[in-house]
Amino acid sequence: MRISLFLDRLHIQVRQNRLLRNFTVFTRIVLALGFIPAGLVKITGERFTDLAVCHPMGHYLYAFYRTGFYYTFVGVMQVLAAVLLLIPRTATLGAIIYFPIILNIYVLTVSVRFVGSWVTAPLMVLANIYLLCWDYDKLKFILPFRHPASA
């Protein structure tokens, strides 16, 4: 059986599960709640944290804060991703925008050995991957699988 056919069948079965549908809504809300406050802090121009500059993460976040427009831009994108996740019609786009932001946060957390988000960052990445898998039917055409011809 081709992988695309297998994934199509699996996706249909998963999407019919009521518990997983409710879990998906819950996941979207929780991820949105994770980005809205952080994004608003950046949009208003406030420092995200008061970590000391002598700490690698504090040094990075201070330099990030000092970038000016880029700092604000990331905040706008965080809020945009969060709001899009909360609207069912735009949730897929929200998950797509959310992914590189949270993946960057995760890689940063691991690279500077920051214990402040060593649990939340990977869980948020996994939750975002779950949402992308949930919308597999909308995203499958960009995957490198052969797709059956449309009738």
Score class of each variant (00 low, 15 high):
L93G: 03
P88D: 07
V74T: 11
P100D: 07
Y70A: 13
L85W: 03
T90G: 05
A81T: 01
P88Q: 08
C54L: 14
A52Q: 12
Y98Q: 07
H55Y: 14
G34P: 01
K42E: 12
F73E: 06
T49G: 05
G58H: 07
I43M: 13
R47V: 09
P37R: 13
V41T: 13
T44D: 00
A81W: 00
A63I: 02
Y60H: 12
V83L: 15
A38M: 11
V53S: 06
L85M: 10
V76K: 00
P37A: 15
A81R: 01
N22F: 11
V30L: 14
F48I: 15
L80C: 09
V41E: 07
L93Q: 08
H59K: 12
V53C: 00
L40R: 04
I87G: 05
F23N: 06
A32H: 04
A91G: 06
F26K: 00
A95D: 06
H59M: 09
F26R: 08
G94P: 01
G45L: 04
V41I: 15
V41Y: 09
Y71W: 08
N22P: 01
Q78E: 15
A82Q: 01
Y70E: 04
Y65M: 02
L33F: 15
H59S: 13
R21F: 09
E46C: 08
I87L: 12
Y60M: 14
